[in-house]
Computed example of a mutant assay.
Amino acid sequence: MLQFSLLDLSPIPEGKTEADALANTVKLAQAAERFGYHRYWMAEHHNMPGIASAATSVVIGHVAGATNTIRVGAGGIMLPNHAPLVIAEQFGTLATLYPDRIDLGLGRAPGTDMATARALRRHMAPEDSFPQDVAELIGYFGDSDGARVQAIPGRGTHVPVWILGSSLYGAQLAAHLGLPYAFASHFAPAMLEEAAEIYRRSFQPSDWLAQPYFMMAAGVCAADTDEEAVRLRSSQLLAFARLRTGVPGKLPLPVDDIAEHVPAHVLAGVNQALGCSATGSRDTVAAQLAQLVDAFQPDELMVTGMIHDPRARVRSFEIAGEVLKEMVVGG
């Protein structure tokens, strides 16, 4: 493993506001920089009462301005919601303001429900134009002085573009285009092994990347004891269960026994979806993360996790950072 990074959705805890969530994001990003994380990514979600990162490029700029060296980016921008030129201008501007620090991960899903997707896009296109949109967007970042339409800022910035996915589609597209690939195994691990194999086997070198670069994501919740970590993680399990049953909300307070709050069949599905994870004390998390890295051999591991108490969340990623630093090649 070459690097370790962090994904933050800017969760809004129960009893707190969107402003609190965004302030927590800045504090966590600053801490992540101190802890040695390589990237700090945020994701586009809309109409979600518990997530404050909807205007993703705006939050990325805010975080980049509050940090100094850590790479900041989108994991990801849901490209079907946007015109490629608009995203090129946004991330070209970010790259101009914060040179060599901005990443752009692209997803194909809407990142919301269909009613909200229609509100975002105004006119829903029946065809899948994602591959063409990705190619168009990458073109805007190139040296396109003679092009009729240019992203200004954007042209010549060569913003690194990633393909994100939770199925085999993204793996095939990333391999075909010769781009780095990140798999969303933190909430959809079922196809992780197959997607990694397809991506590596089918990869075609490009102007952007000479050999495949594969990132996997994993949940993490670390604390001083196994018991405390399990309790802290209950907030995320509750939030995911409520999302799956159609009642999304803010990030709940932790509970002592999650089984008392979530029906068994729902909890089983949640545990399966969030199964690519590590929860516990430092030693427990170290063993579980080492098992994941040994099994899938990612070039980079991105960890994520929602904890109601922002101080406990910072501490969780501090413990994870200590563990991951020892796992990095040459660390």
Rank of each mutant, 00 (worst) to 15 (best):
P263T: 08
G249P: 01
A190Y: 09
F203Q: 03
R200H: 09
C221I: 06
L209W: 10
P189K: 07
R242H: 08
Y199A: 02
P254K: 07
A222N: 03
M215K: 00
V255E: 00
D283M: 12
P252R: 03
V262P: 05
L192M: 10
D224W: 04
A223P: 04
R242W: 00
R244C: 08
E228Y: 00
W208C: 11
F214Y: 15
E194M: 12
K250M: 14
D257V: 11
L232M: 01
S235F: 08
R231V: 13
H261G: 02
E228D: 11
N271A: 09
A222T: 01
M216W: 12
V266L: 08
V266W: 06
A264V: 14
K250C: 11
L251T: 01
Q204M: 11
L267A: 07
Q272A: 11
W208Y: 15
R231G: 07
A223E: 00
E193I: 05
W208D: 14
M215I: 13
R242Q: 04
P189D: 07
R244H: 12
L243M: 14
A218S: 12
Q236K: 06
L232C: 04
D283I: 11
D207P: 14
D224T: 11
L251F: 02
T279M: 06
A278W: 05
N271L: 12
P248I: 01
H265E: 15
E260W: 14
K250Y: 12
V255I: 05
R201H: 14
A278I: 04
A273I: 05
Y199H: 04
A239W: 01
G280I: 02
P189F: 08
V266D: 05
A217Q: 02
A223K: 06
I198K: 10
M216H: 13
L243K: 01
A218M: 05
S234G: 07
P248Y: 05
V270D: 01
E260A: 15
E260K: 15
S235C: 10
H265R: 14
E193Y: 04
P205L: 06
G280K: 00
A196N: 05
D207A: 15
A188V: 12
A268V: 09
A196G: 11
T225N: 13
A217D: 04
D257I: 11
Q204C: 07
N271V: 07
G280W: 02
E197D: 15
V220F: 13
R201F: 10
D207C: 14
C221E: 03
S234A: 08
C276I: 08
C276Q: 13
P205W: 03
Q272I: 03
D226Y: 06
A229S: 03
A217S: 03
A259W: 06
L237M: 03
E228P: 10
G280N: 00
R282T: 08
W208H: 15
G269E: 14
W208G: 09
E193V: 03
S185K: 00
A222R: 01
H261Y: 00
R200A: 02
H265L: 14
A268G: 10
A223G: 00
M216T: 13
F214Q: 13
D207R: 15
V270M: 07
H261S: 02
L209S: 12
A259M: 07
D283N: 15
E228A: 11
A223L: 03
R200M: 10
P252A: 08
